[in-house]
Design a protein around this nucleic acid. Structure first.
Lengths: 198, 198
DNA sequence: GTCTATATCAGGATAGAC
DNA sequence: GTCTATCCTGATATAGAC
């Protein structure tokens, strides 16, 4: 049944891309299974042939969005400084903020995670750690240098996620733009902040 | 009818404190009017004598939380550097992250704002701008210095809001602690980041 | 695997008694 | 102003036909 299997796989992917976009833009509670399936060109009943529950879909969609984004924005393996900077600028762009393509679930769904079950939260956390790892320079040798690298990467990631989340929340477009600019400046400077509490 | 008026005012405040805590910790959609009113010691029907809708309560609760927090944590008017730093450290503490007192709606509800109506979003935005203003040093005279002050304040606020939101989202407690530490370091350095794109 | 139909339930909002 | 009782809608999940 090669055809049938292929068909199922295509349906599943269609549901995932649709759900990833809708969840990111509207949040978990404001998206219904009906809405997802209709946008994917199917009806509600077909849903449970692919996913066991709405929560299950949520976790899968977050992972799917992360994988898709990583694939197209950052090359696998080690990235150059230039590639990293381009990625940061794109992340903190107004286009991303307004929900272009499949928006990043890290920024769009941060404060939604606290209410979700273990499966969803652990998926989100893994995606977060993946991003942190990708933003590290890995130039330092000693463990002290590594710790500083880690701290700098965490600060960058928080500024990226926080910047997009805040800009998206704000009512005032001009201020939102200003926030994005400030965060680009903050996250692009390398190393952005030098200060350990030793 | 002094007694009656006073009674109503007390009920209203009881509803507001209860709602502010519940909304921040559980999000708008995961809190029911029933839940709020029961926790406040009343029943559902009494709700509409105080607020016109759940959304109305949401906006009022955000404002109430902000005013309450501002009152107890930061003195009105100009703050000293030391007071500002204590505030930043308390904001990025694990106690705040875990929902002590009435948590800050800015951090706990960031990614919820995008789905809310104008009234709620504008309330949130006003609270945000209030925090930005409080964190500015106001030492500079020229407009260029002012712009840098503004940028630095925005970076700090994003790191505070983003740090708490991310730490709260994470599944991994050790990593969450690390995030908070990194953000404290980042937000406490003054000026944290020097870079304008001129 | 996908459809239509339906059981079931939670939650927002209103009506009317006290 | 607060209570109980009720209406109504929207949404998850399941059952059974094709």
């Amino acid at each position: 049944m090669a055809w049938s299997e292929d068909h199922k796989q295509r349906s599943r992917e269609k549901i995932l891309t649709t759900a990833a976009g809708l969840f990111a833009r509207q949040g978990f509670d404001n998206v219904s299974i009906d809405q997802v399936m209709q946008a994917a060109g199917m009806t509600r009943g077909a849903f449970y042939a692919h996913f066991s529950s709405k929560t299950d879909l949520y976790a899968e969609a977050i992972l799917y969005a992360a994988n898709t984004a990583a694939e197209s924005y950052l090359p696998q393996g080690q990235a150059t400084d230039q590639q990293r900077e381009a990625f940061i600028a794109a992340y903190l762009s107004e286009a991303h903020c307004q929900g272009a393509d499949i928006p990043c679930p890290l920024a769009f769904l941060v404060s939604d995670m606290a209410h979700q079950d273990e499966g969803v939260r652990s998926t989100w956390s893994q995606v977060f750690q993946g991003l942190v790892k990708r933003l590290q320079n890995n130039t330092g040798e000693g463990s002290a240098a590594q710790a500083e690298e880690q701290q700098a990467a965490l600060q960058k990631v928080v500024m990226m996620i926080g910047g997009v989340a805040v800009a998206r929340a704000l009512n005032d477009n001009a201020l939102a733009t200003e926030v994005l600019e400030a965060c680009r400046a903050g996250a692009l400077s390398t190393p952005p902040i030098h200060l350990s509490e030793e």
